[in-house]
Design a protein around this nucleic acid. Structure first.
Length: 598
RNA sequence: GGGGCGGUAGCUCAAUUGGUUAGAGCCCCGGACUGUCGAUCCGGAGGUUGCGGGUUCGAUUCCCGUCCGCCUCGCCA
């Protein structure tokens, strides 16, 4: 039993004549003087019109009804009756409730905004500050429910596949590889700190060593890095791990999960996911998470460019790993005005490239831009790119990494701004065969492309174990058994087969420039665990926030989180983070070095 | 840490080359109205133009600094 007999979505013509009680908020108020008042009541589930009629109620009740305003929280008892004229806009539009009793549960004061006025919402800052009002909007309720359904679907699917949910600690050991840790001072252990988990990676692997076989957890993770529109410091991961599996077996089960989510949530039947190597993704899309809904592929024309007498090309080719690449943009000759192409240069400069020259291909000739440099290679270029009349071509010339990155990003920008992305298309794929390591010139060290617990592929194992730290080309060429699930150009999940042999794990640490002593201090528990009969295992982590973003069709991660933070990591509603007392700090053996305090 | 855009009433916005009392709609308050459904109509209240400094006879407007929000690069093993 609750205070009400029905929710605001439940009543229909079958309830006519019944006395019912509803609880909810005033969604709209339409008074017609002392004698007749309409109020739309809203709760989580829907809207029902209730009527105050002087012929059906007493004077005091009419007066109380007349004082109702948007978002007052009320309880109403009355008799269900048919409407003279139904309102087809709402599901309960054929009935209304003639009020016999009204109870004001909670009067609202003047609101910063009216949640029922979807067309005139305030800016996001106000919505976040008054999140409890924003959350009353049906659109927000729908998102919360969508997120709930995805979480439930997740638990159901993996339960059916014999995964069990296990909780791992939130107060962890700091392992300052990769992202910055959030730290928590220890009161009991003076001078010691916990870190919040960037992911439960090591715990889930140790669960495999502990015989759990198949593990699931929907879990908060924390990375103290600057947020983005699609990234928060605090986010939710669907964390998975399996024992006694190889890569294809992991992919099969994870692909089944994605298919199930898309079927249940969007009624979309996804075909089997294509697979693409990391190398192919980088070569043809300039990014490790290619959006394959459209072409605009990067084509290597280095050999042709070498023959063109164009300084930009020849200079680029003279660089270490220099390349020249081109993108055919179908039908863009008319779209690429000078104004449009002038913006390409500053855009690619952000990514370290010098520029992105263009040409148009009209009436069998190159024109505008760098056309005059392409005379000698015209026919070969047309053939290589498959040019048709009315196309445009964008070029990039630089070292492989810079050129690829710049053109990859430019490709996405052009696709978005000039409508090359088809509506309603879902292109999933797996990217695999990542390099294990990338050499960073600046620090003179390697870092892991996935994470340092990713195994080399079986075929690479021997070469990996024999690799010499100083042999950069060889180390960079070693392929790992990692994989990412990509959906429309966004990484929604990633994982790998993990290392389950201690000597292999030690070799990774060695190549990462960690001394044996250092590795022992940081990861002794893992290295130890791997020596006690660790099973082969692998897994995946999906980003729950990203998944829900795709399903509801938003690019703003704050839309799918009930209480998100701003881009400076501030909770605008709670005003966190905040200053704490010196006594609190003293207890934790911490003193602030901050110069300014609020 | 760098770059870009923004901040005027509770909310969404306006305000001429710097100009005299900073406007409108919604919300709120008061009133009218018995079939509305974004109800309608009449009246009213509501402002340290984010904050601090500067230029000027005069600053919402121009300049400097600062705070906040959004987007982005770096960053995100």
């Amino acid at each position: 039993m609750t205070m009400r007999t029905h929710t605001c979505s439940q009543l229909s013509e079958s309830n006519i004549g019944q006395t019912v009680t509803l609880c909810g908020w005033v969604n709209a108020y339409r008074g017609h003087g002392g004698g007749l008042i309409f109020v739309d009541m809203r709760d989580r589930d829907g809207i029902t019109q209730v009527v105050f009629d002087s012929e059906g109620g007493n004077q005091a009740m009419m007066q109380a009804g007349d004082r109702l305003r948007n978002e007052d929280c009320i309880k109403v008892t009355g008799i269900v009756r048919a409407r003279a004229k139904a309102n087809p806009k709402i599901p309960t539009g054929s009935i209304e409730v003639l009020v016999t009793e009204l109870e004001m549960l909670s009067k609202t004061k003047k609101l910063p905004f009216i949640p029922s006025n979807e067309k005139d919402l305030p800016n996001e800052e106000v919505r976040l500050r008054y999140r409890y009002i924003d959350l009353r909007r049906p659109a927000m309720q729908s998102i919360l429910r969508t997120r709930h359904r995805v979480a439930k679907l997740t638990r159901d699917y993996f339960d059916e596949h014999e995964f069990i949910e296990v909780e791992t600690p939130v107060l962890c050991r700091s392992t300052p590889e990769g992202a910055r840790d959030f730290l928590v001072p220890s009161r009991n252990q003076e001078g010691m700190w916990y870190a919040l988990p960037q992911s439960p990676q090591l715990f889930k692997q140790i669960l495999m060593v502990g015989g759990c076989d198949r593990y699931l957890q929907i879990v908060k993770c924390f990375r103290d890095e600057d947020p983005r529109a699609d990234r928060q410091a605090e986010f939710t991961q669907i964390d998975l791990e399996m024992s006694f599996v190889n890569r294809d077996q992991v992919l099969e089960i994870m692909e089944g999960f994605a298919k199930k989510v898309w079927k249940e949530m969007l009624d979309v039947e996804l075909p089997d996911f294509p697979r693409m190597t990391y190398r192919e993704a980088m070569d043809t899309y300039g990014i490790d998470r290619p959006d394959t809904r459209f072409d605009l592929k990067l084509v290597d024309i280095s050999d042709l460019a070498a023959k063109a007498e164009f300084g930009v090309f020849t200079d680029a080719l003279a660089k270490n790993k220099g390349v020249v690449k081109a993108i055919r943009v179908p039908g863009a000759a008319t779209k690429f005005s000078r104004k449009v192409t002038d913006k390409f240069n500053p855009f690619v400069e952000q990514f370290g490239a010098g520029g992105a020259p263009t040409v148009k291909f009209v009436d069998g000739e190159f024109s505008t831009g760098i056309a005059k440099f392409l005379g000698g290679i015209k026919d070969e270029l047309i053939e290589r790119l498959g040019l048709e009349d009315g196309d445009a071509v964008v070029f990039g010339a630089d070292s492989y990494n810079t050129c690829t990155k710049a053109l990859g990003e430019l490709r996405l920008k052009i696709a978005k701004e000039h409508d090359y992305i088809p509506e309603g298309k879902w292109n999933f794929l797996w990217v695999y065969d990542f390099p294990m390591f990338e050499y960073d010139e600046e620090s003179g060290r390697y870092h892991s492309l996935h994470h340092p617990f990713t195994a080399p592929t079986e075929a690479e194992l021997e070469r990996f174990m024999a690799a010499d730290v100083k042999d950069i080309d060889t180390v960079e060429s070693i392929v790992s058994d990692g994989y990412d699930m990509i959906c429309n150009g966004s990484e929604i999940g990633g994982g790998s087969i993990r290392i389950h042999q201690q000597e292999v794990q030690s070799k990774v640490f060695e190549l990462l420039g960690m001394s044996q002593e250092e590795a022992t201090i940081k990861f002794s528990f893992l290295l130890d665990a791997l020596t006690y009969g660790a099973p082969p295992h692998g897994g995946v982590a999906f980003g729950l926030d990203r998944l829900v973003m795709h399903i509801i069709g938003t690019e703003n991660i704050r839309d799918v989180i009930a209480f998100p933070k701003s881009l400076t990591g501030v909770d605008l509603m709670c005003d966190a983070p905040n200053v704490v007392d010196d006594e609190q700090l003293a207890e934790l053996h911490v003193r602030s070095t901050a110069t300014a305090q609020a």
